[in-house]
Design a binder for these strands. Structure first.
Lengths: 357, 357
DNA sequence: CGTTGTGAATAAATCGTTTCAATCGAGATG
DNA sequence: CATCTCGATTGAAACGATTTATTCACAACG
């Protein structure tokens, strides 16, 4: 059972040198058809599988890229991962997917691991705002592309969606619907996404000439359904409930929504809800969720292409900072009902009434 | 920037031999404290990172296990993956997550890749019913644990949930609710999950003394939301609609549900829906979804432990076949309404009325 | 004083590939 | 017939770590 067969044995069986076998594997065209066949036959017979470690050791670099995300259970990231995988596969690279659960410690460990693996490049949605680990990688010459992170580092590409504008879109919409007490349920403010989306929300207030006090914030430990449930219960317990809730992502929104529905609070009549990311499940929620859509798959695809391009021509590579634009998708969870509670400020700004999916 | 620093340079700086540096890395206790400190200082100063390929080449095996799933975008699998990752991390192993999208070709490619990486073991939910790739891996001496697959191979562990019983639970419930025209929306019958769940559904009919004609099947290409949408539209188009739909997994169910809700078909009054997996989003759906729950995370955790145990003591390892039991979680999407359409067969078999989550 | 024992460090062999300079054989050329 | 080309093949030297047998320094012991 334990039969690690090496290139050497293949060579022996095919009566050629190991160099020739290697050539069959890597540049089949330089070896004569007859011998090539012989070698291939030997490979098949012995069930030989190239030892990637040895290959890598010699050639210096792996054929893999690392993808480090905050939460694999979040469909936003798996959709993004799919984009990454497609692009990577096209270029003949494997993807090593790492999950940090928003933990700095886990992020550090994973980056360490990827460095040891000598991966070609790393795509990362940082959990550590200091970017310490990323800096170290860069020093070691590993290409890095920051995902969903503002263009802070000069020697690093980044692909992001303008979260600030996204936050502004969401809150502008809520204001237009007549809401003037809004709670933002957000993930850890340590994370850039949380900060930017919040900043955008404040922008919306400012541009509408509203006071900052219109927006209160509930911060929960993580951007997941559990966090949303917790925030939802907190809202229920309040004597005075806001008329609208803007959630930092859809998982939070789904959690909040679930609590409201179960408690008999009507959405959007009693409380409107807006999410962020527009994951597929948002449209299928108890009340279809208004959300800020990001081109998830395209983000991943673009990032992968960037990192591959950089590793292929490290010298003439220019570090790009690509920013996609978010798009508000209005659904029932925030749509004005026939009897609006407050009729002030009725703008007509809800035109892009995108369909279900 | 491009400075791949090796153990050799560390040795030079610390004025010791490479062997000693290796010892500091792997058995710190055998080296004198003073020199150990010196070496560690050198490592820090040079920013040395061990080359995992070289380590692996010499020691023969990687510290990683492969996890091959049918669809990373399915929360069922990401939850499972989380269980795998936890157990693997505890044992000091990394996890390489591979996505096959139910495609045999992709599965083959990924297994090839994992073999080249000389991973410790592989956990796989097979897309290829012939298990060809798995067989090859076994021949090469790689430990394999089959996930969600019946115990067919004698020399391979497996961790599964009794899908047949799960299917039976679901349909028995629907029959008890008085439905006698049921459509099963299922994924590719090539996949074991699809076959078993269908077989279970038939079991339910048999035990209830019903004719097989009670259950029709719509087979869609893949176990995802898109498939569910397609099936939903197909159902809508029918002149005569069934009173209940049993979906092979929750993504299909969410798709069907979405079509129904949008078309104004009332759930469960006009049509009841039951899903499978009980993913978190099932409880948050437009109509909270009745579903068959599987211990997702525990499946992953158990499988990882098995594969690690096997690789640590390959000889005395006994191949286990572990089967978990599914559990029906009844929610609104299938609950009897005040005015049942057909009042026959009113059993009391819906006791485990599990709460929302 | 010579022998032995012990803990610490070293030197060299090794893992399985890739790569590159060197070699070979055969046909073309002068 | 000697020489040159050129494609095909070979052999050996890396790559960067681990591992094992060996050496070394020095203290303990009879």
């Amino acid at each position: 059972m334990k039969t690690p067969v090496s290139i050497r044995e293949v060579a022996a069986l095919a009566k050629v040198s190991v160099g020739t076998v290697s050539n069959v594997l890597n540049r089949p065209d330089v070896v004569a058809p007859a011998t090539r066949e012989r070698v291939l036959a030997a490979i098949a017979e012995l069930g030989f599988v190239r030892n990637e470690s040895a290959r890598q050791l010699r050639s210096g670099t792996a054929r893999a890229i690392g993808l480090v995300v905050l939460d694999v259970a979040n469909p936003f990231f798996t959709d993004m991962a799919r984009g990454v995988e497609e692009a990577a596969t096209e270029a003949g690279h494997a993807v090593i997917l790492c999950n940090t659960d928003e933990s700095i410690a886990k992020e550090t460990r994973h980056l360490e691991l990827l460095a040891e693996q000598r991966v070609h490049g790393v795509l990362i949605t940082p959990a550590d705002p200091s970017l310490e680990g990323v800096r170290k990688l860069r020093e070691r010459g590993v290409s890095v592309v920051l995902l969903d992170y503002p263009a802070e580092l000069p020697d690093t590409c980044s692909v992001a969606v303008d979260d600030r504008t996204g936050g502004e879109l969401a809150v502008t919409h809520l204001l237009a619907e007549g809401h003037d007490e809004i709670v933002m349920v957000n993930g850890a403010s340590r994370l850039n996404q949380a900060r930017e989306r919040h900043a955008g929300a404040l922008d919306a207030l400012r541009k509408a000439g509203r006071d900052e006090s219109v927006l209160q914030v509930i911060e929960v430990p993580a951007f997941n359904v559990a966090g949303g449930l917790r925030a939802g219960e907190q809202l229920l317990a309040r004597a005075h409930r806001p008329s609208a809730v803007f959630c930092g992502n859809d998982l939070l929104a789904l959690g909040v929504l679930q609590v409201m529905v179960r408690a008999g609070v009507r959405v959007p009549d009693d409380v409107a809800i807006v999410g962020y990311d527009d994951i597929d499940f948002a449209a299928a929620a108890a009340v279809p969720l208004t959300s800020v859509r990001q081109p998830r798959q395209q983000i991943g695809r673009t990032a992968a292409q960037l990192v591959i391009a950089e590793t292929q021509a490290p010298e003439e590579h220019e570090h790009l900072h690509i920013t996609f634009s978010p798009e508000l998708v209005i659904r029932e969870s925030s749509r004005r009902t026939h009897k609006p509670k407050r009729s002030r400020n009725v703008s007509t700004r809800n035109s892009p009434l995108a369909a279900g999916r």
